[in-house]
Design a protein around this nucleic acid. Sequence first.
DNA 1: GTTAATAGTTAGCTTGGCTAAACAAAATAT
DNA 2: ATATTTTGTTTAGCCAAGCTAACTATTAAC
Lengths: 165, 165
Amino acid sequence: MSEAESSADDVRVFAATGPPRPTGDDRRRAALAERLNTATLRLARLIRREDAGLGETPARLSVVSTLVNRGPSTLADLAELEQVTPPTLTRLVQGLERDGYVIRRAAPHDARVSLVASTGRGWKLLEDIRGRRLGALRAGLAGLEPAELRTLEEAAVLMERLARG
Amino acid sequence: MSEAESSADDVRVFAATGPPRPTGDDRRRAALAERLNTATLRLARLIRREDAGLGETPARLSVVSTLVNRGPSTLADLAELEQVTPPTLTRLVQGLERDGYVIRRAAPHDARVSLVASTGRGWKLLEDIRGRRLGALRAGLAGLEPAELRTLEEAAVLMERLARG
DNA sequence: GTTAATAGTTAGCTTGGCTAAACAAAATAT
DNA sequence: ATATTTTGTTTAGCCAAGCTAACTATTAAC
């Protein structure tokens, strides 16, 4: 953290030029960042643990999930969405195609690009994923009060905003 | 989803024995599970992306983090905490030891077990991890209103409860 | 004092990430 | 119109990290 290195003089400089907010507020955000960090990672772990029973790897599940959610995509687009390099995605898609989860065809107006799409089997796989993940979450949610549900509903929106940057 | 296979008769049976709640409430939880699923995974991705700049892999960072947080541990305990098999952890620890992040010594009363502990270098590494992660989150939190911070604070507590099961 | 169980390690396989280089098609420039 | 460059994907080859099965060393049990 770079602000750990700031001296008292630095603080005065900022104060002179007008800091955005009093420091108590920043402290609050620091503490929240801490809690949100661990809470998010733990919950993510719980969700992903559910995927294990499917007999498919996370990377493969993610590709199928993306294809089902965003529709047919070029290999390069898919690589960017998955945040991996094209060679990695080529190999993943080859495996998924071999196993019948996706199909590929050349794009109509550009023979270089290959369009990838989910098959019915891919859709069914995604249903299984979602069923497991949501089942695990709903089990936990069943024990919460309406007010707590409301909090999480609002938080989910905020979290997506944070994730978007 | 097992309930996708239930027939109308099944539903009637459940109705006769008394379902726990009216369906509207359950629908709400289902929708929330959906949103929470994607929001959590996206935020987790943002957080982990910060780790990349450290030049260390996620598996290694996780081992060091666990050691710093929970103190010296046996290899088997550490393997369970990390949710990997002992051979995998053996190799990780060997690499971390070679690079000076952890040390190992035989347990005093049982020469079979080896205790692993973080070195000062390991602590420093963890500080870097936290600095980056929290920095990224705080950047996002800086744009939020006090009421929104409050929502996230409450939500973080609930999320940890969900993750605990 | 053998035999069982336990803790770690070694060996060897698979998957999924990467970069560099090849290839094929399209776009551009001369 | 042909030569060049740019673009999208693939191939080749590396490394990290997961696994199981088999081995070693130490402790515990009979």
